[in-house]
Amino acid sequence: MTPDLWSYPNGVYDMGLNPDIIGFDVQATDGKIGSVDEATYEASQSYIVVDTGPWIFGKKVMLPASVVTQIDPAERKVFVSRTKQEIKNAPEFDETAFEQPDYRDRLGEYYNRFPYTGTL
């Protein structure tokens, strides 16, 4: 069963507490991709925006909450279930339209191509 793309998998964080993960390192399955620039915790609308720094020439990427597999507050790390290349190939982050349904639909079409690997 595949959960909502825009919801965090069960057990990723305490639903009663929205952790402040701004500035946490983001770890893809094959290494660090940047740090969290923004994060939301709204039901069925959650995402993180990652500042990739020099890795993709200072660009940002938006990741749906369902790709987050773990948040480690002690290590200040967020782990995601995608490779660097999968993230790099995602639709370009559009700072003016990222909250619009059309942009989310395009991003959702891209990320739905990959098998779900989180916890139900």
Rank of each mutant, 00 (worst) to 15 (best):
V68F: 05
D102H: 12
Q85H: 11
E86G: 05
P19F: 09
L120Q: 15
L17E: 06
T29D: 10
R82C: 05
I33N: 01
P91L: 01
D20F: 15
Y13L: 10
D37T: 05
D30N: 15
Y13K: 01
I48M: 01
N112F: 07
D25I: 03
P54S: 08
D94I: 08
M15A: 14
T52Y: 06
T83Y: 04
F98T: 01
P64Y: 03
F93S: 05
P91T: 08
T40H: 14
P115R: 15
E109W: 05
D30V: 10
G34H: 08
A74T: 13
A97Q: 14
V67G: 07
E75M: 15
D14L: 12
I48T: 00
T69K: 10
N10L: 11
T119V: 15
T117R: 15
K60Q: 04
F114P: 03
A39Y: 00
I22D: 01
L5S: 07
K88S: 03
P54W: 12
K32A: 08
Q85A: 14
K59D: 14
R106Y: 09
V26H: 03
V49K: 03
T40G: 11
Y111W: 15
E99G: 15
S81E: 12
Y110G: 02
D72Q: 08
V78S: 01
I22P: 06
V12T: 01
V78P: 07
V68N: 06
T117I: 05
T69F: 01
V78Y: 06
V78Q: 02
V50M: 07
G108D: 01
T52I: 02
L5D: 03
F79T: 07
F79V: 08
G58V: 08
G53D: 13
F79Y: 14
V80T: 00
T96V: 13
I48E: 03
E95L: 04
V68Y: 03
E99K: 11
D30G: 04
G11L: 13
G31D: 09
G23M: 04
A65D: 05
T40F: 04
T29G: 06
E99W: 02
P73D: 04
K59G: 14
P9R: 04
E42S: 13
I87H: 09
L5W: 00
G118Q: 09
G108L: 06
S44T: 13
K77A: 02
L5V: 11
I48V: 14
A74V: 13
D30L: 00
L5F: 11
N10Q: 13
S81P: 06
T69E: 01
E92M: 12
I33D: 07
E92K: 13
Q27K: 06
Y116M: 09
K59N: 13
K32F: 05
